[in-house]
Design a protein around this nucleic acid. Structure first.
Lengths: 338, 338
DNA sequence: CTGAAAGCGCTTACAG
DNA sequence: CTGAAAGCGCTTACAG
């Protein structure tokens, strides 16, 4: 019953070389598809490799060559579909380019982030895609640069400009959302969700800017801090309904906050689109089929991920090139919620 | 401006050894925390390592030791929060155990799956956690076993029993959901979503079983095949409303199918819970705050991921142990949709 | 407790 | 076009 563990691939290029009656350098060359080897010889080598069940030991090769085809990506909130979509975009781009991803999830835990980054370093990652946990030191990109590992920061900026960045023009996004609500004649508009961080600052800034432009003064009692998840959106909407029952419009920090808000609205017998105008932010896939379909600010999450990956690839190819910043241009997407 | 790329960590244990005036074996031993080394010496070595900015080259170590602390996990649909939650559970468990995850996303593409598995093999993964793409050959687990790589299959069984598996008792789950609807006196109950695969078979089987038990004959016109995503659920519900307007209850293949159905219901001015009884399956986080909150079958997705990881760890620790099967016991969770 | 030596599986000049 | 040799950064018996 208990079969002993089968030994892991112990056959090496040396075995292949012997079987194909060439030197191991020759085998190495054909494995790399070098044109230096006569096709006839190459075919013989490949046949021998196949017959022996040879499997390339990529890590040995990378050790010798001092290269790596793995890329570290650190995400902090996969439970949020926005990040899941970003990750999918990243992975797609990266595998197409011949890389494989070393993935880590921090749950906003700085200690975890530290550990995981260190681990990626020990694994000699060819590059790192980082969505920094809340509270990450501004100096982190500098440290990683000092390690000699190409880095691109995603989604959340850390301030300064000493690193490549892929995100979106959040301020303009909420500006668009707020202006949309304003142009429908509404003047009392709440802001729901978010608790801290630059991203929140920027989103609030856009909200403020639109209000100011329209000549309406911001009522601080209308911005409801809340966790950036459904639960947070749910609670924020309930609070809003309670404290300011006359307000019938809100822009949310993100789509998932809006989903929670939609749930609260439904619970109170209100329907977004008819009784209340609600705007989301991100345009995650879910937004197209929420109840009701969510009007939102589209920043194309998976595309954002692909751009981040592209920037990293460019940085790896040319470490000396100038700073790159990709900022998705937000687009207002009016569906039915507002 | 264009700073030359900084050379990657070229300082090695040899440099540390020189600085600390010991041999490199000694350095290696202290790095491994060996008790063979006098504390005084160890401290001196650590100090030297710190001063020089030494970073452990884990891959070199693994090559020599023929070990690996990376685990491959292949997921096919991260856009579905169910899988995102499973992944989070896996990652959490794995990093705690000192592993790091090599993550790949197949989007149900068999060719991608093949490539990615091969890549993990070349990277000498210590184990693989696989949620097989639709259409995966039953023989795949056998192949991977032949590679000598511990494997656990997740979520979707491939038939047979020649491998470790972590999933849930899907049949019992839909049985519970259907029975719940039945016990409320409903007798015309639709099934929405899913297009093929064992998981669908099992879920349909539970639906059938509950119907049979209650003495109601299954109306094939009431099972609506549809993609297992929101769009699919949306379309299926619209079709149902059109073709069988008197039916006011349905169990869905999964929560996200149910979300789409909720959207369709809302569009028609219907409210789940009041006008229609709708049950989901999985209990993803979103289900608690959908509009309305979704009644569903809880299989604790992230816990499922943790169990899968635990099983893999056990298999790695003891390759000869007997087959493991973790099947989450589904629990009916009645919220407001039905 | 510590050092010298061999070797993990590959690649890469360097000769021929 | 192909082979012999050195070396990537580590670990692990083996002596002492």
């Amino acid at each position: 019953m208990a079969r002993p563990p089968r030994p892991r691939s112990q056959i090496t290029i040396l075995d292949v070389a012997t079987a194909a009656k060439v030197s191991k350098s020759t085998v190495s060359l054909v494995l790399q598809g070098s044109p230096l080897i006569r096709e006839q010889t190459a075919a013989r080598v490949r046949r021998a490799a196949g017959k022996l069940g040879y499997v390339y030991n990529r890590r040995a090769a990378e050790l010798r060559r001092k290269s790596s085809n793995t890329i570290g990506v650190v995400i902090n909130d996969l439970m949020n579909p926005f990040f899941a979509e970003v990750l999918v975009g990243i992975e797609r781009k990266l595998v197409r380019a011949g890389y494989i991803v070393l993935m880590a999830h921090t749950s906003e835990d700085l200690e975890r982030q530290r550990t995981v980054l260190q681990s990626m370093r020990e694994h000699n990652a060819a590059g790192i895609l980082l969505c920094p946990a809340l509270g990450t030191a501004k100096s982190l990109p500098r440290h990683i640069a000092a390690w000699g590992i190409p880095l691109v920061v995603m989604v959340r900026s850390l301030g300064g400009t000493g690193y490549d960045f892929a995100g979106a023009d959040y301020e303009h996004g909420t500006y668009l959302a707020t202006r949309h609500l304003l142009s429908a004649g509404r003047t009392r508009i709440a802001f729901l969700g978010g608790v801290s961080g630059v991203v929140l600052e920027q989103r609030l800034q856009g909200y403020r800017a639109a209000l100011t432009e329209a000549g309406v003064v911001l009522d601080p009692g209308l911005v409801f801090a809340a966790a950036t998840n459904r639960q947070g959106g749910y609670g924020a909407m309930l609070a809003l309904l309670e404290r300011a029952p006359r307000v019938t419009a809100a822009v949310c920090y993100s789509d998932i906050v809006a989903f929670g808000a939609l749930s609260a609205l439904g619970e109170r017998g209100l329907r977004a689109g008819a009784d209340f105008a609600l705007l989301g932010f991100d345009n995650v896939l879910d937004a197209a089929h929420s109840n009701p379909p969510l009007s939102t600010v589209d920043i194309r999450p998976s595309e954002l991920g692909e751009h981040a990956a592209t920037a990293l690839l460019a940085r790896i190819a040319n470490p000396a090139q100038s700073r790159q910043t990709y900022l998705a241009e937000p687009q207002l997407l009016v569906r039915q919620s507002g």
